[in-house]
Design a protein around this nucleic acid. Structure first.
Lengths: 155, 155
DNA sequence: GGGAATAAGTTGACGCTTCAAGTTATTCTA
DNA sequence: TAGAATAACTTGAAGCGTCAACTTATTCCC
């Protein structure tokens, strides 16, 4: 099955390249990239977890690692028990350096291999798959509750 | 990016469902399924590693786990230092039980969501991506050498 | 306004994967 | 044919993710 192999090999390839050449996980990259897009380069952990498609627990561990590198800083948020993660200047520089490395690789492995037509197809297909995946993704017990309450609120 | 989310969420969803309902990893499932297709339900570890898209080290650990479950048995092969993995009867029964569970889920998450046309597109696109991925996949230092020697032989 | 439920994070243990280093057996090659 | 290289594993440590359990703060409601 091609599908299977792709979904095994592609993430592995991308992850290991980013790890080797930028010293970070693909997930860590995603977290920092998400932060960089926010006003003030900061975001509450709960929300960051959703944006980065990870559980809060995972995120908490990752933020600790990123703090150790000096790339991110925890800032206590304004509301409730909220904690924000904030991208430091050092983290921003690191991200700017890692970005091209990463996107070049994605380009090489995906976009250069496919015709523009195929890229379009792939985008459409993956977006349809996500529609089925996102509402039920198992993001751990906490995230499940978050999703549930998000649903409740949206009624 | 849709692509990114799909490649994060889909494997996670499939893995966690298989883990919950059949008590095995998707990789373990793949290994047992590969064995079941071989004559005598056995295969040398080196080759099994390639078929299952994993490093030899990873496979060795996994085979140890599967042996502990009584699903697979190590059999010393005929040539050289070769070791074969053999699917036991218990393992075969387990696999027969896990198969439908797994494929139902894949169907639900992928094939039911897409039109037949989209499925065709997805198959074609993934097979083209694999063409780029397989020759250079980083399967650890040993597998790299194996690939290298495979190339050497094929000249 | 006081106690229960809920929300947001943190933490530690456990399992899996990778990587590097170690074995053993086999095959070249000088 | 002895020694070096190579092949086929195995093993152990380190890192990451998940899960369950634990804090602490907030809100609900009677």
């Amino acid at each position: 099955m091609h599908l299977l192999a792709t979904f095994t090999l592609l993430p592995a390839a991308i992850d290991s390249q980013l790890q080797r050449e930028a010293g970070m996980t693909h997930f860590e990259f995603g977290v920092m990239a998400a932060l960089s897009r926010q006003p003030g380069r900061r975001l509450q952990l709960k929300d960051l977890a959703v944006v980065a498609n990870g559980s809060l627990s995972r995120l908490s561990h990752v933020i600790s690692r990123l703090e150790r590198q000096g790339w991110v800083r925890r800032v206590s948020g304004t509301k409730g028990r909220a904690t924000d993660a904030e991208l430091t200047d050092k983290g921003y520089r690191k991200l700017m350096e890692a970005g091209p490395i990463h996107f070049q690789e994605v380009r090489r492995l995906v976009f250069d291999v496919l015709t523009p037509q195929e890229v379009k197809e792939l985008k459409r297909v993956t977006s349809r798959l996500n529609a089925g995946l996102i509402p039920e993704t198992n993001l751990g017990p906490l995230a499940r509750r978050i999703r549930a309450s998000a649903l409740r609120q949206s009624r």
